[in-house]
Amino acid sequence: MKSIFAVLALAVSIVSAQVNIVSITSPLTGTVYTAGKTATITWIDEKVDTISQIVLAKGPPTTLQFVATVAQNVDAHSRSYTWNIPSDVQPGSDYAFELGTSPNLSFTGHFTIQAADGSAPASSSGSSDNSASASSSAAPSAASSSSAQVPSQQPDNQNQNQNQNQNQTPNQNQAASISNSPAVPSSSSSPAPQNNAGLKTTANAVGALMVAGVAAAAML
């Protein structure tokens, strides 16, 4: 418990020992500078006579990383300093100025330094968002193209079914006409022997009559 209280006491003493040496009025968060031109830093309410250094830093507010020294031993009562931005400064939107030396520091908000030609710094988050949107738009387009292909096959299937039905219809009509047509007797059908039997019967009757006529004539 004693060690915890000791750490807390040390942290409180460090925080209380920090001094915001000036109140910065420029640049404000979102200010845009151009490489090769000038940037003016202004402040009020100076708590010191001399600002030990002004530093250009880059990165998240809690973990700013040193980039370059802008100036040293600046008269705090002048309340401004103009910096000639090098033309080869890397473009970025997460720059900040640190005024003073730890623990007596003052910070600006994040500002942007764009390239000398005026082009905005590249944003990795923007490019990832663009690629995600492109892949998400590609998925609906693929789905729409596949859905568009399905109906195109249905008319073909319907046409095939209609063709099959049309092909079957003449066959069915032919079958119906054949079934409805009267049967034609062939030359080998049974009535032919019946006609031959009738002829034989008639011949026999004629022969019998002739014999009877001859017999009658002989008796006379």
Rank of each mutant, 00 (worst) to 15 (best):
M1C: 12
M1L: 13
K2D: 15
I4T: 11
F5I: 14
L10P: 10
S16D: 15
V19G: 06
V19L: 13
V22F: 00
I24L: 03
T29S: 14
G30L: 02
G30R: 03
Y33R: 02
T34S: 01
K37L: 02
A39E: 08
A39L: 12
I41Y: 04
T42I: 00
D45M: 08
D45R: 11
E46K: 08
T50C: 01
T50R: 08
T50D: 05
Q53G: 02
I54A: 00
K58D: 09
G59N: 01
G59H: 02
T62D: 15
L64C: 06
L64W: 05
V67I: 10
T69P: 06
T69D: 08
T69Y: 10
V70D: 06
Q72W: 07
T82C: 06
N84M: 06
I85Y: 07
S93V: 11
A96V: 12
L99E: 09
T101A: 09
T101W: 06
P103G: 14
L105S: 02
T108G: 03
H110F: 10
F111C: 06
P121H: 08
S123K: 04
S128N: 08
S128Q: 10
A134Y: 02
S135G: 04
S136T: 13
S137M: 12
A138I: 10
A139Y: 07
P140M: 05
S152I: 12
P155N: 03
N157L: 15
Q158M: 05
Q160W: 14
Q160P: 00
Q162P: 00
N163V: 01
Q164R: 05
N165M: 02
Q166I: 03
Q166C: 01
T169Y: 13
N173W: 05
A175E: 08
I178Q: 13
A183Q: 11
A183E: 09
A183I: 11
S188V: 06
Q194C: 08
N195M: 15
L199C: 13
T201V: 09
G207A: 15
A208N: 15
L209H: 12
M210C: 10
M210F: 14
G213A: 15
A217H: 01
A218M: 04
A218F: 00
A218N: 09
